[in-house]
Write a protein that binds this DNA or RNA. Structure first.
Length: 801
DNA sequence: CACTGTGGCCGTGGGG
DNA sequence: CCCCACGGCCAC
């Protein structure tokens, strides 16, 4: 007897059973049960695009002849579709085993009459979601027949006996409500630098659940067998739907898996018997039936935090202030573990980490769930996927709805390195300026794409004609305006959708859960819409179109250039501008005229984004600091906002900017800098504030130049620490002879007395301060002179007479 | 397997 | 000494 089911899709996977693929929909139903719905009716397929004028039946017969018994070709159907907006004929080739699509595609591509093989690289479970128009984290209804299955660790398994229909009454319910969340964090023994999983045990595993329970497992000395066993047991008992961690895809899971192997155990933490976590797409690790979300992926998108360690990110988000938690030096975990007096600190540290991780989940998952509902990628994958992939997934769904075939991603070698001209940055007018308005074009690039109907499907080849055409200035590309471009349709849908969500938000009070839910939704839509221009210029994109991206920037340059002319013709002083922004004198009447002329004359939306009561520029572009009308200091581009300068230099520069902007008192700023220099000279500085952080962007042996952070990284490696591509290297400069890079040391091996304070004066604090003070005629000598304390030599000299 | 684009600044090393 | 490429990060 089929039952009616109402459920939320969490994830989709598949398994080949008895020679046929079976889709597994992991869900939870409205009664709070965890269920699996099986669908054995779906089959993998791909398209063979036919050469023009080809006889489909001849090609079809050739395709059928390729059929192999292991996974026969079960269907070859002629379809009339569109490809880049043009009508085409294609064969839809269906088989049985998803993995064999790869082999068939190669062979079919070689057949005469076949121009291209399409959509053969879409993964089977994603294919299912797209074709059935299903979105993870949304609610559906369907009927299913209960079946007995012992290989799934869930409350019930059903065989689907109907299609899935979206349940609209649950569309605006918080998708995370009622889901069980577990945060975890492991501490590994590291007596020799970085821990080595084949040698060093896991000494602590902390877990925190959203029902309030917290558990901490501890090794017996250096034996972690029971820890691992208990961990598996606990995960199964608590049965979380979502597992969160911080960097667990790169560290905790691989480490636990290796430890399990060493101990002869199996890490069966999924909802499928016998299965261990396994590597999946985008560097993500998949735990069957659960959503394994690495929160580090979300943290990476917070650009305000430069060193994205868990404590820094949790501090920034107000989840756990750094001064209210236990901080221990991570490279000394083994010492803490082995010391009876200090072990307690390590345990407390682990509790704080895992508590922070759960706190981050509450911050990030609502947005992640919306991204999942909108892009169509399961929550765990959407976290790990880049913005471009999230957008592309949505494009693939839109393409299907419009009967468009999805283009292939270009092969690596075919991707030519093609650059094109970007935006205009105006020369700033150096000096301090009073009362400046900053105007901003609203979503300039997406607006251009919509207005001029830009896209690979509308880009006209030489000789092609359309009744209405838009020609990009300077670069010559023409776009057909007779039919709506694919990008335009998608973007307009995004814009309309976002407007609806924003309108709905108004119905709820600001802090309410509904308001926050909708706010996350409109943010997710905006993020996707804003990525569309960059996506077109990305050589690996399925809808890559260099001419399109080139045209968008050309129209952008024209737009800002025209806006500048209008401003000048109105007698408005223009101070600066970058891409889509314009800094002009804040004369309200003229500014309103400017906005009106741009809006009506150029047909683009522009608005006053902010007003600075004072703002200053040096001669450098992309750098300025301002005091807003409501009393806030903005620092843009300068060292103070960069992650690769010492905290001390950044702090000094920020304070100088603030003194100058608020009081206009340059003398005061000079005195302040002198005091900082004095402190440094007397060795009073906090060593932590002298650390310089830089990312290793390639392997250590690939560097041509010996930069300081590369030298420090090599040193770390010799000391037994793992340094991978992407690691942030923190170093300080010590006294001694030779080039700076030879004097760079990993910050955690340096004693305060070894530090070269002169380096920090000459190359950090003074240049950062001067960047601003030079504008007021202050010299390096002036900053350093008065600050010079009697040196030991002077002192002795005087004394000795 | 990948992991959006161009414009811009500036410290540093290394060659002449 | 100058000059320029390398390298990293930031603005938009």
């Amino acid at each position: 007897m089929p039952e009616d089911l109402t459920f939320q899709i969490l994830d989709v996977s598949y398994e080949v059973e008895a020679g046929r693929p079976v889709i597994e929909i992991w869900a939870r139903d409205d009664k709070g049960r965890r269920i699996v719905l099986l669908d054995d009716s779906f089959r993998p397929y791909f398209y063979a695009l036919l050469e023009e004028g080809q006889d489909p039946s001849a090609v079809s017969a050739a395709v059928r002849r390729l059929s192999k018994p292991r996974s026969p070709i079960t269907g070859v159907d002629l379809v009339e579709a569109r490809y880049f907006g043009r009508p085409v004929k294609a064969l839809r080739v269906q088989t049985v085993i998803p993995e064999t699509v790869r082999d068939y595609r190669e062979e079919v591509a070689k057949l005469p009459g076949v121009k291209e093989v399409l959509e053969a690289d879409v993964r089977f479970s994603i294919r299912y979601l797209i074709d059935k128009n299903l979105y993870p984290m949304r609610w559906y209804r369907a009927s299913g027949e209960r079946v007995q299955r012992n290989d799934f660790v869930v409350d019930a398994v059903y065989k689907l006996s109907s299609d899935l229909a979206e349940e609209p009454s649950l569309a605006d319910v918080d998708p995370l409500e009622g889901l069980r969340i577990m945060a975890f964090d492991i501490e590994a023994y590291n007596p020799q630098g970085s821990p080595n999983p084949s040698r060093d045990p896991v000494v602590v595993i902390g877990m925190a659940f959203n029902d309030g329970e917290k558990v901490q497992l501890q090794a017996k000395g250096h034996d972690d067998k029971d820890v691992l066993r208990e961990f598996v047991e606990l995960v199964r008992r608590k049965d979380p739907d979502i597992i969160v961690g911080y960097n667990q895809n790169s560290f905790d899971w691989p480490y636990l898996l290796e430890r399990a192997k060493v101990n002869g155990l199996k890490l069966e933490v999924g909802r499928k018997r016998g299965a261990e976590p396994s590597p999946s797409v985008f560097g993500h690790i998949s735990v069957q039936g659960r959503l394994n979300v690495d929160l580090y992926n979300f943290a990476e998108e917070i650009e305000e935090v430069k060193v994205k360690s868990l404590d820094e990110v949790a501090d920034y988000l107000g989840v756990m202030p750094k001064d209210k938690r236990v901080n221990i030096e991570w490279w000394k975990i083994a010492e803490y573990w082995d010391s009876p007096e200090r072990r307690g600190l390590l345990l407390a540290y682990n509790v704080d980490d895992v508590t922070s991780t759960l706190g981050l989940a509450y911050q990030f998952l609502p947005f992640g769930a919306q991204l999942s509902q909108i892009s169509g990628l399961p929550l765990d994958q959407v976290a790990a996927a880049s913005v471009a992939f999230r957008l592309e997934m949505r494009f693939m769904r839109e393409a299907r709805k419009l009967g468009e075939l999805v283009p292939n991603r270009k092969e690596e070698e075919a991707r030519a390195f093609e650059t094109y001209t970007g935006a205009i940055v105006l020369e700033p007018k150096p000096g301090v300026h009073k009362d400046v308005a900053v105007l901003d074009f609203a979503s300039m690039y997406p607006s251009i794409m919509v207005k001029y109907n830009v896209g690979p499907d509308t880009l006209l080849k030489e000789g092609e004609r359309c009744e209405r055409e838009n020609q990009a200035p300077g670069v010559g590309h023409r776009f057909c305006a007779d039919r709506p471009a694919f990008f335009r349709r998608v973007l307009e849908r995004f814009l309309k959708w976002r407007a609806e969500v924003k309108a709905a938000m108004k119905k709820y009070p600001g802090g309410s859960p509904q308001y926050r839910l909708l706010n996350e939704r409109q943010r997710a839509i905006k993020v996707l819409a804003n990525a569309s221009y960059g996506y077109m210029g990305w050589a690996a994109a399925r809808w890559y179109c260099k001419g399109c991206a080139e045209s968008v920037t050309a129209w952008g340059r024209e737009l800002i250039t025209k806006a500048v002319s209008i401003a000048r013709s109105l007698g408005l002083q223009v101070y600066y501008g970058d891409t889509d922004s314009l800094f002009v004198a804040n004369e309200p009447e003229k500014v309103s005229r400017l906005i009106e002329e741009i809006t009506k004359g150029l047909e683009f939306d522009i608005k006053v984004d902010k007003v600075y009561s004072r703002v200053f520029f040096t001669e450098a572009k992309k750098r300025y600091a301002g005091l807003t009308a409501d009393g806030k200091i903005d620092i843009v581009g300068f060292e103070a906002v960069r992650g690769d300068w010492s905290e001390l230099a950044k702090e000094t520069q920020a304070n100088v900017a603030e003194i100058v902007l608020r009081t206009g008192d340059v003398r005061k700023a000079i005195e302040y800098v002198k005091a900082v220099i004095n402190d440094l000279r007397s060795g009073k500085a906090n060593v932590e504030k002298l650390v310089i952080w830089k990312t290793l962007t390639k392997g250590l042996d690939e560097y041509e130049a010996e930069a300081p952070h590369v030298y420090a990284a090599r040193m770390m490696e010799k000391l037994g620490f793992k340094v991978d591509v992407g690691s942030k290297i923190g170093y300080v400069i010590v006294k001694g002879e030779g080039p700076v890079s030879r004097r760079a040391r990993p910050y955690f091996i340096v004693k305060p007395t070894e530090i070269d304070y002169n380096y920090y004066i000459d190359k950090q604090v003074v240049p950062a301060a001067l960047r601003i003070l030079e504008l007021f005629g202050v010299s390096e000598r002036e900053l350093k002179s008065g600050a010079r304390q009697a040196s030991l030599f002077d002192y002795l000299g005087k004394k000795g007479g």
